Simulated assay, not measured.
Amino acid sequence: MNKIIERKERLSSADRRSQIINTALGLFAKKGLSGTRTKEIANEAGISETLIFQHFKTKEDLYRAALKELFDTHPLMPEVEGLMAKKDDSGVFSTLALHLIKHNREDPRIMRLAIFSALEGRHTANLFSHREEIEPPLPQLLSDYIQKRINEGAFNRVNARIAGQLFVETVFMYIADQETSITGSSLSFSDEETVETLVSIFLNGLKS
């Protein structure tokens, strides 16, 4: 009889929810949202599928909770808020870029989920990118800062939204290229030197 036998240990509601989220995160990172079935998550966690829906109304709700868990583990705002307040332009861009690189190395699920969100179409991409309840999406965070500096006369008048988006996309491309060598042999320079060069080029363009 192919019936799920739930684990004997009794977990609190909060612990069970956390277990489901962490199990789902691993599968979402391997198969994406569309490729992961709630039955698989239940099997992996050793629980019934019904129990998942006692904690989450839909698979999309579970996906949102999984993203929140993942990004709460890698918070960015505490690192950049002080630099933004000081108007340390180089520090803001460098810290943001190195944060993305460092935390992707520590937890490759971030990049995997980002790639799947792009491949699976607009619905999943929107779920991944609209995470305001966690913290502002990185392009928005950077675009707002760029616009503020434009208004203060520190940066040239450019489209801040495009500038913020392109900077973040460039960093993600670097991360992906280091992992897969899309454009050829990976750079042999340190992340710090690479980011310093990128930020210098970017800021020179904004300030020239």
Rank of each mutant, 00 (worst) to 15 (best):
M84F: 06
S94G: 07
F56T: 03
R105K: 12
T180V: 10
N156I: 12
E135K: 02
T23P: 02
S12Y: 11
R17V: 02
I52M: 06
R149T: 11
E106W: 11
E196S: 14
N204G: 14
L187D: 03
A125F: 02
M111I: 04
L25P: 00
Q54S: 07
E152Q: 12
E40F: 00
K30G: 00
E133D: 08
A29L: 04
L67H: 06
S12D: 10
F128N: 00
P136E: 07
H99Q: 01
N156A: 14
K39S: 14
R10C: 05
L33K: 04
R105Q: 10
K86R: 07
N104H: 12
D88N: 15
A85W: 04
K59V: 00
I110E: 02
E192M: 04
M84H: 10
N2W: 14
D177T: 01
L11T: 03
G26S: 09
A24S: 15
P75Q: 05
R16L: 11
S12M: 11
I47G: 01
G46S: 04
E69Q: 03
S117Y: 02
L138R: 12
H99E: 01
E152D: 11
H130W: 10
T73Y: 08
A114P: 03
R64M: 08
S185I: 15
G82S: 08
P137N: 08
L141W: 02
S48L: 06
A85K: 15
F172I: 09
E196Q: 12
A163F: 13
F93H: 13
N43R: 14
N156F: 11
